[in-house]
Nucleic acid binder design. Sequence first.
RNA 1: GGGGGAUUAGCUCAAUUGGGAGAGCGUCUGGCUGGCAGCCAGAAGGUCAGGGGUUCAAAUCCCCUAUCCUCCA
Length: 876
Amino acid sequence: MGANCDMKADDLREAYLAFFESKGCVRRPSDVLVPRWDPSVLFTPAGMNQFKDHFLGKCKLDFTRATTCQKCLRTGDIENVGRTARHHTFFEMLGNFSFGDYFKREAIHWAWEFLTAKNWLNIPPEKLSVTVYQDDTEAYAIWSDEIGVPAARITRMGEDDNFWPASSPTQGPDGVCGPCSELFYRMPDGSDVEIWNLVFTQFNRVGPPPDNLRPLPSRNIDTGMGLERTCAMLQGVDSNFHIDILRPLVEAVGEVCGKHYVPGDDDGRRMRRIADHVRACTFAIHENVMPGNNEEKYVVKRLLRRAVLDGRQMGMRDPFLHTLPGTVAEMMRRPYPELAETVDRVAAVIKREEESFLATIDGGLERIEKLFTAIQRSGSGLVGGAEAAELYTTYGFPPELLETLAAERNCAFDWQGFREAMDEHGQRSGAGLRMEVFASGPLDALKKAMHGSEFLGYDRLEADGKVIGIIAQDRLCETFREVGETTPATVVLDQTPFYGESGGQVGDTGWLSWPGGRFEVLDTQREGGFMLHTGHLREGSLDLGQTVAAKVDVGRRGAIRRAHSATHLIHAALQHYLGSHAVQQGSKVDTDLLRFDFAHTSSVGAETLQLIETMVNQNVLASLPVGAQLLPLAEARHAGAMMLFGEKYPDVVRMVSMDGVSRELCGGTHVSNTGQIGQVRIVGEESVSAGTRRVTAMTGLRALERFRQAEGVLAEGSAALKVPVAELPARLAAMAKELKELKKAKGATPGASLSVDDLLSSAIDCGGTRVVVADLRGADAAAMRQCIDHLRRKASPIAVLLGSCEGEKVTLVAGISRELEERGLSAGNWIREPAGIVGGKGGGRADLAQAGGKLADKLPAALAAAKQEIVKLLGG
RNA sequence: GGGGGAUUAGCUCAAUUGGGAGAGCGUCUGGCUGGCAGCCAGAAGGUCAGGGGUUCAAAUCCCCUAUCCUCCA
């Protein structure tokens, strides 16, 4: 009897989650692929990522058992993708988790049951083998005695294989860790494939060995089963890329590229890599990660370019990747139906990046031709690593392509030199800071005790609250008495009307007061559900448990509310005029001031911008009521609230609506009627990164202030030029024109033919050559050059040296006609001595030279010397 | 966040050690011409990205700023 053959990926996901639900686990949705709340990672790397706080007991638990199917992305093994049967960037991980609840025994028994039971996967037990950590006798005993796995199929392994984090007992880091146990399946070809890893988090590491592993009071389970490889096993195929949710995609790649998919050849490898990368990018771009130059954006860019390059090496010269996200969405339709909603947008983003990369390649090709010419001249027949690395790091030209081109010209490619040069580049670029995976701070104790502070500030700006935490100098303390500005303190209240910075809206300021004391709040931040009031103690002393009256700065809050409501109106107007793709990418809401970033590829023209501004102001003048309500996520979606793809929303959301014009999920504070905004002026529009534009706007009194300022500038300009404001542009244009003409006229006068004739008449003859040495007071260098040109054209052979001065500054220009140049004379040599006389230096070409000095009164002497010199040179 | 590079006529790009700002395409004018980028002659068009510095002299060297490209984390 074989395994539960030919189980589809969709069915495996469902079976796994249902099985662990039957064991009391809460089924949680996949976390987003790009967890913006987690600064320690760019992409979700494993199933446990969304439960970090649970594992550390850093948050109050609503459940102690969970199961998920998590989308993940890793780039650590990116070079192997496509080459091997089981490497991916994007993949899915099935997991079950226990937070201080069930432990080793249940985890092992249930894993075995799910794999082998007839109504679950029904895998023949003899095809399975396991590993345990060498010192984990407990796990060994469970496998051996309770499950009955024969000793021959239980392997004890060292800490580098069977510990998490790997090798942590001897090498660290300190903190939670534990042994793990892996399950392997024997493939038809005889190889064993790891399909499931069970991590038993049971220790706290404290310092180097020995005796550095202390038992944890609360032990956890974290398991991960690779969806793709388990499917490959169940479906009896030799590669993850041949399972039901990937093979059609690989074949679709082949179709687009006009090639039949043959698993064994080079193109087969390329098609698999393209399939993997386009799947990863479809998910990432769906979550609004655009290809760019840093962090996760750069990863997306690199994946896309790698895929384009593979296509190019299969002969594709035009964008093709962008036709594939539809297939990805189709393959992943059941678990991720939302992908279908953004396919067009994702495809557009990919296409733009493809075009950009193809342009980069075209630009690089010209440089490469030069490189090959140089190689041919040198006869080395080798493309140097340093040159290749420069081409790559500076112009983005991929080394693989360079190698291909080199091969066409019978040149070798120095991969080793290339890698060395790239290593050096990496060194120079410097390693960025890496965040601690499990950072802990003074708030952790608070988080354990309660869910967070209650926010009262939607309805009230004054309220009493109890002090539940005081943080000073990064430590929790019982009391704080330092009056003044030397040490800032942070106060946490059980409930507060202060808004903590989030959703782009800045935090409130104001005062906390109590009998005998006052605390000035300069900023409010939000962290883990707590409002942190940061500022200075002004009077008295602050103690834990004290009740304080919290009062928000009303005027400031009013300005923030105006700006926030205006942001929603602008968002709606942008979508109306630019299209539904113009979704929010980021926002900052300050006092009567806002910045709003949105997805759009080209600059918004001045006219459109005005239309948008007008629409927003019409909605202000209409005095629309603004309402907020709490409702289930599904209902909000149904009501058509604007949602950002890839954002993770709680089950109950707050929807802010402005009477049919705008509906957004938003936790911010708003005016109660759009009329209160006053006016909205869009004062700037710019690009912040490829594909993202930013508008800046002002509301209320700040908009008025801005308008007055602009009027002031105009008034000053009009006063300075003594013309009415309305005539300022015409006047300025006229002045600019006049200025230009004046400059031209000034330059032309001394070089006019009139003075040329004058100069010629004063020329002396020296053996058939005419010599002109003259003082052209006030002429600039360009004019004298022109003059020399005229003289040479009119009377060759001729030698001319002209001088002029302005203030102390002396300028000399010398020129000789070609005949004299051929006789070995040089203007550059000629001018050197007179230049010295006026206290300067000079030089130039043989036919024309220029010099200068700072001794204006010596100019006549310099000219006399020049005349003597040239006569000597000619007459000799 | 760091490294490398770019920015010159409407467009695509040149300009040797610092020494006179150019070409092709496009535009305009005149002439020639039965086609497909038609041909000939001429002209206009420049804050050499912006600012500071070095120098007798800066598109060129140095510093700062802006924008864009690119690699790395």
